[in-house]
Design a protein around this nucleic acid. Structure first.
Lengths: 205, 205
DNA sequence: CTTGCGCTATACCAACCAGTCAACTAATGT
DNA sequence: ACATTAGTTGACTGGTTGGTATAGCGCAAG
């Protein structure tokens, strides 16, 4: 169980941040190395290619994010609470990025996936995997909402995917219009899509 | 009223196609020139910069697309017909691109907007303008659906935007998962988001 | 001491990048 | 016949790209 080298860690972190803030295409390997304070030789010792690094950075980001997602989607909370906390998490994260970078960054997986899906199959697959992971949370949430009689649904998997499409669509529009307000209204549309009356939601235990 | 030069036209067409198929970052000015059969000098005679060309190509694309949109969203058709035709148009266009390019391309404005919104303000603004244009159609549709008593809505502008977020989100996911099926199911989610019972929809005149 | 190994440092590459330029052609106006 | 203008050409620039080659470092085991 060898532990990961310091440079690898710094490269992953720098790459994630820079690619998220700009785009894959506009960030060079040299940029990443400089930011990480690592030499190019070390870069290509740690990663086969730029696109390999991107994939690894995505995986790393997910590893850090998963615990928070597990907490939010824990069956310990009522489905409405989960839904609310989920929306709040997205809003909080986006606002925080907006403050640090002075602009809306949206969802990193979607931005890069959207940029490179037709260009780089490994990156496309990684972005697809990320979608699937998040959709799993949505799916169990949708089932629990249905079980609680809060929504009507024939195909929970499809509704989960629809929910995901909506959420990522909102994030993308917020990025394109560079406006936090659009994420702030996230919950309204989520409720409408699921078919939950707002009153019920706010009156949740 | 001087007519536009042939090279300019060819450049706009080539640029739109290549950037849509790949991405802004992965298509070079030389690539576009080669494809358009135009020399580099002529490129920079016609356009100030690569990013200027992209903006112009978007505008050109819209000019070609608008008449079809006007037809589909014409008040001559019932709101449900409009909605249905709109979904069908998206599905048809995406399938056609899928056939020609062998992969899902999604929405060009969103892909490029998502790629470059944090990098190039002119492109961001153009992508934003495109969103607004489409949302206008959604807005009048939503109002007419409400007027016909088919949906309940407090803020039509917001619902129109939610609809747009959903549609673009679906297109993005279809691109990332490289799967036409996800666009084919577009209408189902649209109906759910609007709150229209499917039976009513299929039974529309 | 020395061998071996994980990692780093630096120099280097050919290809490519966006953008420039002065010379050129062709058509039009006088 | 000449001047003006609009558009074209392709070589050129200076910098950047992703990726490589290789020598060297520090350190731990033999």
């Amino acid at each position: 169980m060898k532990q990961e080298s310091e440079s690898k860690r710094k490269l992953l972190e720098a790459a994630m941040e820079m690619i998220w803030e700009s785009s894959y295409g506009s960030v060079s390997v040299d940029d990443i190395c400089t930011k990480a304070g690592v030499n190019k030789g070390s870069f290509y010792y740690a990663f086969k290619s730029k696109s390999d690094l991107a994939v690894a950075a995505f995986e790393r980001y997910w590893e850090n994010k998963q615990p928070r997602m597990d907490t939010i989607f824990s069956p310990q909370a009522s489905p409405l609470e989960r839904l609310d906390n989920y929306c709040q998490l997205i809003i909080k994260d986006q606002k925080q990025k907006y403050q640090s970078f002075g602009k809306m960054l949206g969802c990193p997986f979607c931005s890069v996936g959207s940029e490179l899906s037709t260009q780089d199959e490994k990156i496309r697959l990684k972005a697809e995997q990320m979608s699937r992971r998040v959709i799993k949370y949505h799916e169990s949430l949708v089932r629990d909402l249905a079980a609680a009689g809060l929504i009507e649904v024939k195909d929970p998997a499809e509704l989960a995917r629809e929910l995901y499409s909506y959420v990522t669509g909102v994030l993308m529009q917020a990025k394109i219009e560079n406006n936090v307000k659009h994420v702030e209204r996230l919950q309204h549309g989520v409720m409408r899509l699921l078919g939950i009356k707002e009153q019920l939601a706010t009156a949740a235990p």
